[in-house]
Nucleic acid binder design. Structure first.
Ligand SMILES: NC(=O)c1ccc[n+]([C@@H]2O[C@H](COP(=O)([O-])OP(=O)(O)OC[C@H]3O[C@@H](n4cnc5c(N)ncnc54)[C@H](O)[C@@H]3O)[C@@H](O)[C@H]2O)c1
Ligand SMILES: NC(=O)c1ccc[n+]([C@@H]2O[C@H](COP(=O)([O-])OP(=O)(O)OC[C@H]3O[C@@H](n4cnc5c(N)ncnc54)[C@H](O)[C@@H]3O)[C@@H](O)[C@H]2O)c1
Lengths: 235, 235
DNA sequence: AGGAGTTTGTGAACGTGAGAACAAAACCGA
DNA sequence: TCGGTTTTGTTCTCACGTTCACAAACTCCT
């Protein structure tokens, strides 16, 4: 009990904090590009669009990487957050469903620059297999297992129609994938130990529509909207 | 103070509930398509991938639309949720930035079927203005104000590079748009009264990577992962 | 009509997250 | 060396969200 266990990072970071770390990482990247070497929690919080107290608390879960009276070393903090998230090395990723969205994702340069590498594009439609997208061959969906084994893929992206999403999920899980990013509007069933995150355009728009309706429907001059406070923009 | 104010739906629904209503709506659409006329909270919760107690509590914010001992009338509940969200009529939407992602969004059929109508595609690059995407002309970004006024647009979608996102935002706000869905990896500054939601692929992947790293790094056989419980899939 | 069986709606307990406030720790200048 | 200034790390409190558990309300069958 006296000695720390074998894993060095034995703390468990709150989920809300984990979701913000990538935002901080991006803000730090911007600061690095601008040549900034040091920043205060106030600076970084502004760039990330959050409260500075919240930022400091978030960072405190990783350790004490700041210096009181000075602030944080941008490069050092960037590395520490990248290490904590696990993007100091690239993660291999497969994309399934190379339609409208799949094409856009395959061409997305941000993948590579943020710790991910697309190792394969898969589609069930044989007419797609002639194609190359972003310099990568589109391959038959049946090759999934082989590709996952060969590259040690842990993360899969689903960009198929909703009707196919569960089948694709099951195949991914069977092949050894344990993290899935789902763009299809479907609720996926997965066994324990597999993480699913969804990106859903329609849901986001409907949430906006709800608030929009309230603005219009309620008092025409109701300032009680919980809108974002004006903040610095970051790339 | 004795009489209720003019607005009928004066309750304020928790934000977490608002974010789930679209999921319920979609599950109900599926049930409707299957010809189901009635469902219990257990059924619907399964289809939506949530706890049934949470579902009932969420619905209770809208009113008492169920019947004890029976369940909910699928069609009636669908209408009530759609009305609450505000998607009984279509919302006009503009998309700015018709590159890789913008093309995919313009071609996305789910817009129309879920309460939204793309009234214009805008891009700053003149070479794009020759183009038609999904039967809609790509127009100069300068036309934004005119289009917003003409169609009464309240919702804008940003699919430009991050560097342009704040400028686009400012122009949108100036033209009268009060809800923005942002796909660019940038923190946007907006005045009070304007809502911003972001969709960020890189952040989602990095969150997955964090958990993935934990699975691998910690004990190789650690079942303490807070993974999704197996649930029914829905279209 | 009445009792058994179902399922909703909600009060209460619990857990997580946000923000204010401040002591501790560093730097700086004389 | 020492007081003043700055900024972090942390504690405390409040608000929000989740889940349990159960009374109220409804149906169905006898
Ligand atoms: N296009 C968008 O902007 C957008 C936005 C949000 C969500 N989505 C969702 O993303 C998904 C894809 O959208 P899209 O517009 O690219 O659709 P799409 O029809 O253009 O592409 C789907 C692709 O998936 C492939 N596919 C179908 N079944 C498959 C299977 N079992 N295994 C492998 N591949 C399979 C098809 O061959 C096709 O190439 C849909 O679920 C859609 O609702 C799209
Ligand atoms: N491609 C993807 O799958 C993907 C995924 C996630 C996020 N994103 C983000 O979405 C955004 C767009 O990505 P993309 O791949 O489509 O990029 P892209 O370069 O293909 O398209 C950007 C488009 O925006 C236009 N544009 C630039 N400045 C503009 C301005 N000031 N006003 C109006 N239009 C302007 C350009 O002319 C271009 O057509 C980027 O911020 C990217 O990071 C893309």
């Amino acid at each position: 009990m006296t000695a720390r266990t074998s894993t060095e990072t034995a703390r468990d970071i709150p989920e809300a904090t984990v979701a913000r770390l990538p935002v901080y990482l991006r803000a730090l990247t911007t600061l690095l590009d601008e040549g900034t070497t040091t920043c205060s929690s106030e600076d970084l919080a502004g760039a990330a669009g959050v409260n500075s107290a919240k930022l400091r608390k978030d960072l405190s879960y990783l350790g004490s990487y700041g210096t009181r009276g000075v602030g944080y070393d941008v490069e050092y903090l960037h590395f520490q957050i990248a290490r904590e998230i696990g993007v100091t090395h690239d993660w291999p990723v497969v994309i399934v469903g190379i339609g409208n969205l799949g094409h856009a994702l395959a061409n997305f340069s941000g993948f590579r620059s943020r710790g991910f590498r697309v190792v394969a594009l898969l589609d069930a439609d044989p007419s797609r297999h002639e194609e190359q997208v972003a310099g990568i061959d589109v391959r038959p969906f049946a090759d999934l297992g082989e590709i996952v084994r060969e590259h040690g893929v842990a993360i899969g992206v689903i960009a198929t129609p909703a009707a196919a999403a569960q089948d694709v999920t099951d195949a991914m899980v069977a092949s050894g994938i344990t993290s899935i990013l789902n763009f299809a509007p479907a609720v996926l069933a997965v066994p324990p130990g597999v993480d699913v995150r969804k990106v859903d355009l329609s849901i986001e728009l409907q949430i906006l529509a709800y608030h929009e309706q309230r603005k219009a429907q309620g008092d025409p001059a109701d300032p009680s909207e919980p809108a974002e406070a004006p903040e610095e923009a970051t790339a």
